[in-house]
Simulated scan of single mutants.
Amino acid sequence: MEQALIARRGILALPIALAVTSPALAASTRTARDLLRAFLDTLSAHDLKAFRALYVDDGYVQHQTLVMNTPSATSGPDAAVAYFRRRIEAFPDLKVTSDVSVVDGDMISANLIWSGTHAGEYLGVPATGRHVTFNSTDIMKVRDGLFSEHWGAADLYGLVNQLKA
C-alpha cells in the first residue's frame, strides 16, 4: 500500500543516478522527472549548452535572488546559465545529485546535493583546494518539457563555512 502511494504521488524514494551517456529526450515528450534528470546530468557533465536547452526561451521567471547575480543585460535562462557557469569555474569537478524529489504535475521539488573541489574564487572566497558538499532545495515549474520558473534556497552559509574552515 505505502509503495503504491509513493508511486502514485511521484515521489522518488531512491537517489537519482546520473546517466550522462543517455540521449536527451525531445522537450515535447520529456516528463518533469526526465527534466530533473537532465538538469543533474548536464550540470554534472558541465555541458552548459545542453543545460541552456532545458529552459523556455521566453517567459522564464527566476523567483530566487541569486547571490552572485549582478545587474546586467543577461536575464532569464541565460542568467541561470551564467550563474552555474561561475559555480563550475570555481568547482571544476562539480557534481550534482538529488537524494529526494517530488514531482506533482508540472511542479518539481528536489533536494540537490552539490560537491566539488574549490579551485577558483567563489562568493568572495579565494580558491582553497578544499572538497565541499552542500545542498539546495529547489522548486521548478515545467512548461512543455522545459523549465519555466524556479524558487530555491541554497545552504551558502554552510558552504562558506566549509571554505573558510
Rank of each mutant, 00 (worst) to 15 (best):
Q3A: 06
A4E: 10
A4K: 10
L5Q: 05
I6Y: 05
I6T: 04
R9H: 10
R9Q: 07
I11W: 10
I11S: 04
A13M: 11
A13Y: 01
P15G: 00
I16R: 08
L18G: 00
A19V: 02
V20F: 05
T21V: 02
S22K: 09
A24S: 15
L25M: 13
L25R: 15
A27W: 04
T29G: 04
T29E: 13
R30C: 07
L35R: 07
L35T: 09
R37I: 08
F39N: 13
L40R: 00
L40P: 01
D41E: 11
L43I: 06
A45M: 04
D47T: 05
L48V: 04
F51V: 07
A53E: 15
A53N: 11
A53D: 15
L54P: 09
D57L: 12
D58A: 14
G59A: 04
G59D: 08
Y60G: 06
Q62D: 14
H63L: 02
T65W: 09
T65K: 12
L66D: 13
L66K: 04
P71N: 12
P71R: 14
A73T: 15
T74S: 12
S75L: 11
A80V: 15
V81P: 00
A82R: 11
A82Y: 01
F84E: 04
F84Q: 07
F84D: 05
R86K: 14
R87E: 08
E89N: 08
A90E: 03
A90H: 02
D93V: 01
L94Y: 00
L94M: 14
D99R: 06
V100T: 09
S101V: 05
V102L: 15
V102S: 05
G105D: 12
M107Q: 11
I108Y: 00
S109I: 08
A110F: 01
L112M: 07
I113S: 03
W114F: 15
W114V: 01
T117V: 07
T117K: 00
T117W: 03
T117S: 07
H118G: 09
H118D: 11
A119G: 08
G120W: 06
L123C: 10
L123E: 08
G124L: 10
V125P: 05
P126E: 11
P126Y: 09
T128C: 11
G129A: 04
R130P: 02
H131G: 01
T133W: 00
F134E: 04
F134Q: 06
T137M: 13
D138K: 01
M140K: 02
V142Q: 12
D144N: 14
G145N: 08
L146C: 12
F147L: 12
S148D: 13
E149Y: 01
W151S: 06
A153T: 03
A154F: 05
Y157Q: 08
L159D: 08
V160Q: 15
N161L: 14
A165R: 13
